[in-house]
Design a protein around this nucleic acid. Structure first.
Length: 509
RNA sequence: GGGCCAUUAGCUCAGCAGGCAGAGCAGGUGACUUUUAAUCACUUGGUCAGAGGUUCGAGUCCUCUAUGGCCCA
């Protein structure tokens, strides 16, 4: 796709040429700045109105009011904006003329002068000299702002969702609150790291390109290494590599990184997403639960100062302990079905259909769905949306949990939990299976139970089984969707709002 | 995968009963010696998402396609 300047861009290219004719380099090598806009305003507040404090500020021109012999303009930098007050007699005829005629909103400038307060009361830089730092050719969708009772009201803001995602740079440039979302996200990541590091976990990085995929029920992206002549997969989880590290004697490990799943895109799914997984030797899933609730409370305190957050108008209390409910209790409570009365898939599917009919609600009983998948479906449809306050759902069906340790004397369940906040599944954890013989059996069972295209069916990873045969300490493992946590803490309802560059379908224009 | 809705100027949006494509902001020209959504005067700007159809005539009605949003699966 090549670029054909539109009329507005052509005008600016013309101005660019005239700037160059006037001997002005529109993209100079260096800039100088003594104060950010926020620092300048703070310094003025300290120094007082009569201080005539000299400053040099840099930023984008975001407003301009030409009064003839003087010009008022605002420059915005990352954290704020400040007004420039530019007078012809102070900067000189030519400089004034160039500012007036050849600058545009969106241009980066550097301005030096002393701080003063205008008649209208706004702290401003009384400009004695200025320089162009970067000429903007394409006009930003600049909106006008007005401050009403200390709140910034923006008019005609850039708000087309599709364009905001496709041109996130423009979105970030003109919608400062979008920048805040990603600051929140960064603080979330840093809080997670601090918490894990403080609890003796080692941060590691394992392969993204894998010869075999595994550790989750998902379809992978496939790629190819030309020189090795080898098919490779983008990882769908970190699990099997992190657990190899426990075999190697690293007792507490975690990884934060990208997983890739070749599946649908929705308000809570992006083909690549960020996951945090950890594994701790000598822990079981109850230890993991304790760690989980403490971690979330820690994150909340780091981000907000307290453990209570507001999500979409709902108060959510993250302080431990969180309620724990077995899968069986949860399903019974929300659907009236005690699935232990139907311990095979056909009878459970029938019970679900009956319940749906009786309640007049849609149910999902796809043919061939295993017992565990049916239960998981009930959880997603009837329980998950109701779990607004943080909740652990425990004791998952064995047939959908091939990497979790069974519960003694219970052939149908394993020591696993998922946790839910704001009606969203946030993470998944279990007492990890460390018996290599049982693990092989479980893998083989999946091969028999699930069809070739079923997402539950992963290839058998013989190298992983070999690692297990060397002896793996008992351990607890955990995975959390970082994007969903970011949604929670940024109070956003779609994953795209917390991803800088969310995946969108290609557009052929 | 299915249903509904949307797509009009750089941005935000009108336009419906089929009859000359509009507004505000941004842009241009000019005025203005402290304005702040500055103001005032004049003014430029469009493949009405794309393709096809109905019609004397389509931004408006129909079909298909593309992209996005919401709901369902």
């Amino acid at each position: 796709m090549s670029w054909e300047p539109n009329p507005l861009e052509a005008q600016r290219l013309e101005k660019l040429a005239r700037l160059q004719e006037a001997g002005i380099e529109p993209y100079p090598l260096r800039a100088e700045r003594t104060h950010t806009t926020a620092a300048a305003l703070a310094a003025f507040a300290t120094a007082g109105d009569e201080s005539a404090l000299p400053v040099t500020v840099c930023g984008r021109l975001v407003s301009m009011r030409d009064m003839g012999k003087s010009i008022f303009a605002h420059v915005a930098d990352e954290h704020g904006r400040i007004q420039l007050f530019l007078r012809r007699e102070e900067v000189g005829e030519e400089s004034h003329r160039i500012f007036q005629k050849l600058l545009d909103l969106g241009d980066f400038v550097q301005a030096s002068g002393v701080l003063m307060r205008t008649r209208a009361g706004e702290v401003s830089v009384r400009v004695s000299s200025w320089r162009l730092l970067s000429k903007a050719i394409t006009p930003l969708p600049v909106a006008k702002e007005q401050e009403i009772d200390g709140k910034v009201v923006r008019y005609s803001a850039f708000s087309d969702v599709e364009e905001r995602y496709r041109q996130r740079y423009a979105d970030l440039a003109v919608n400062p609150e979008v920048r805040d979302v990603f600051r929140t996200r960064a603080r979330l990541l840093s809080a997670i790291r601090r918490f894990m590091d403080d609890h003796g976990f080692l941060e590691v990085e394992t392969p993204i390109l894998q010869p075999l995929y595994g550790g989750a029920a998902a379809r992978p992206f496939t790629t190819y290494h030309n020189q090795l002549k080898q098919e490779l997969y983008l990882r769908i989880s970190f699990e099997l590599y992190l657990k190899r590290l426990l075999v190697g004697g690293l007792e507490r490990v975690y990884e934060i990184g990208r997983d890739f799943r070749n599946e649908g895109v929705s308000f809570k799914h992006n083909p690549e997403f960020t996951q945090m997984e950890f594994y701790a030797a000598y822990w079981d899933y109850t230890d993991v639960m304790r760690h989980t609730e403490e971690m979330l409370a820690f994150i909340a305190r780091q981000l907000t100062g307290g453990t209570q957050i507001t999500y979409q108008g709902q108060q959510i209390e993250l302080a431990p302990p969180w309620p724990r409910l077995t899968m069986r209790q949860a399903i019974l409570h929300h659907t009236g079905i005690d699935y232990m009365q139907y311990t095979d898939a056909p009878s459970l599917a029938e019970a679900i259909r009956q319940m749906g009919k009786a309640r007049g609600v849609a149910t999902q009983t796809p043919p061939g769905a295993s017992w565990g998948k049916l239960i998981d479906g009930l959880l997603g449809d009837f329980v998950e949306p109701a779990l607004i306050q943080p909740t652990f759902i425990t004791e998952y069906p064995r047939d959908i949990s091939p990497l979790a340790k069974g519960i003694p004397h219970d052939p149908l369940h394993v020591e696993r939990f998922e946790f839910f906040i704001a009606g969203m599944e946030m993470g998944n954890a279990f007492t990890e299976l460390n018996d290599p013989i049982d693990q092989r059996r479980r893998f083989e069972m999946l091969q028999e139970t699930f069809g070739q295209d079923d997402e539950e069916r992963n290839p058998i990873d013989e190298d992983y089984l070999r690692a297990m045969r060397y002896g793996m300490p008992p351990n607890g493992g955990f995975g959390v969707g970082v994007d969903r946590l970011a949604m929670l803490f940024a109070d956003k309802t779609t994953i795209r709002e917390v991803l800088l560059f969310p995946h969108l379908r290609e557009r052929n224009t």
